[in-house]
Design a protein around this nucleic acid. Structure first.
Lengths: 191, 191, 191, 191
DNA sequence: GATGAATGAGCCTTCATTCAT
DNA sequence: TATGAATGAAGGCTCATTCAT
């Protein structure tokens, strides 16, 4: 029970950081604001994190790890390449829709010098199973012989962007939109 | 000539802002640093811009305008849809390659609450001719009946991302890569 | 045995304080650092001392008391004034050489407003037997009719300073140096 | 005139630092307190000094330089050793009496890790003419063959301490005391 | 007695902005 | 116009102290 409380505090701080940085931007989210949002004293943050940079980096790392785990939910390397891709593609969509705040935070961080390169690198490695799937697809002759990054930018980046924009405009993607988007994604990278 | 000098000063400040914000990040680029880089006194910045936010927003707006202008260079609304798209797509690629600093700045701003939504909106309106082209393509039955944003995310976003990543890794895109990328872009949105 | 343990804890805290304050300076020796060095929880310090000021003052007081006790070791009020002075002078030298850390701490405190004047006063009173010796010397006509403080500053202060400097430079005082120093001390105050 | 104002500000800060550090101790003299005492904004201090450490070190350096200059006032290397020493000894006494605050500050700093060793070293070099005088005295056979530091600790340290104590007790040294003190100083180091 | 997580006042420092020149 | 010294609010962080266990 004691341990639970501690976990709660750490989690509360991370959650508050996510919210405050998303709403105000990194440099307009003071530690005092984060601590207040977390229901905690400013000094307490420094019991769990070395400094502000560490706080942000830790949050980024944990969110990326969670993302990497979620997108492979229900995925099995025995699936056909198309089926596997469909599962992962759907998971990416679902994550972005269900956890838009987390997704936004990750994106903000990716375009900022406040996340260490080492940390960013780790994020990419976490989706290795997807790279493996694509490579199998290339060996089987169903996926275009593109680099990982090209495959990513044509088959996953668009849907990530689409969801982000639909959330920003407070519109929603229709089932047809989603089907179309998946088809376009697959068309772009499949032979 | 006085006027020229004045223009020079304003330009110098904007240029310095671009450089400093790109290199150090927004919250680590103080006005004093920008003024020094511009060869100007801190107070002078306030003769041309209301405050730091205005400075950043102005720079963002002008870069977006320049971007919008450049991507339609050589474009003519009489062209076939495919030809027109090819010209614009190439211009986007060229801009991103030739002005990576400007492109990076724009992208940093797009994911940040420091640019007013109004300003962001204006950016989108500036590429109206591209929307017109797509609409014509849809009427002619050569472009998929997707929303603007879907067409954008499948046909232009990928190449923007690809160039950014290639610059980050200090690798370069081969001619074949580019041809493949264009083909994939067109495949994704054409019928 | 409980009592012993307790004494150990109190002693450990005082010892840690001495070490940390000497090595890092007063304002760079946090209670947490002292407690860790003492192998004790921060809260525990407050069971034995009211606050940091009290901790420092107590340590100062006890070290001064120890110093006062040591410098009269082997001294007997029946000795001639010269012999008595020789014993005490030698003890002062020995203390400074054998317990340089304690001596350094005392000196740091003497030049600081963090020790209460009352406490500093007590330190002077502890060397009463030396004052008595000097007074007897004056009555016997072998010691100059100087005030206590003048006698102290000419006959003991120099050797204290000399040892401190030799420790700082990591050089050592030769036997000849010491003999010379004693002679100069005695010359300065004797008739 | 502009320059004068600037000098005034810098001087005001240094003067305020001297006073506040003397009265409250280094760690209890916040920059805000110093700035208020100087009639200046906290930020202004950082226009003249890099940080608190630099402020303290600069003050120490300048006071030491002033001290070194003052103690040789009226001194001429053609004087006899005794006359020269008398002049310097008197100057030391005068400085300590007339500028007790400065002298106290220097002393506080000498026993603290907050002054860089380099800076302390410079202080010692500034009294070279005194060392030269002693060496001449040794060649002429009127000064004991002691090391510099021994000569200093027997002939100058006592009077420094005496004045300090007399100021602390708010008593004053009589003319007789001073004559006695000089005689004792000279006796201690002369042959 | 003993712990150590938690507190929050207060410190040093930065930096957007102003204003006298 | 242009300057840049000066400002002072605000931020990140520390650390003496407390209190529930």
């Amino acid at each position: 029970m004691e341990k639970v409380k501690v976990q709660n505090k750490r989690e509360a701080i991370l959650k508050a950081t996510l919210k405050m940085v998303n709403n105000h931007g990194f440099h307009a989210a003071p530690m005092s604001m984060i601590s207040k949002q977390a229901g905690v004293s400013p000094g307490t943050i420094y019991l769990y994190f070395e400094n502000k940079e560490d706080l942000i980096n830790t949050l980024y790392r944990e969110l990326k790890a969670k993302f990497a785990e979620m997108i492979f939910s229900g995925f099995d390397s025995d699936m056909t390449v198309l089926d596997g891709f469909k599962v992962i593609w759907g998971n990416v969509l679902a994550y972005k829709c269900n956890e838009p705040e987390e997704a936004l935070f990750i994106e903000q961080c990716d375009n900022t010098p406040m996340i260490s390169d080492e940390n960013k690198q780790k994020g990419y490695q976490a989706i290795q199973p997807l790279y493996d799937l694509w490579e199998r697809g290339q060996r089987e002759g169903v996926v275009k012989p593109f680099s990982r990054i090209m495959l990513f930018s044509f088959s996953l980046l668009p849907i990530l962007y689409l969801v982000k924009e639909s959330l920003r405009n407070e519109t929603s993607l229709s089932t047809v939109d989603i089907e179309n988007a998946f088809k376009a994604s697959w068309d772009a990278i499949s032979l």
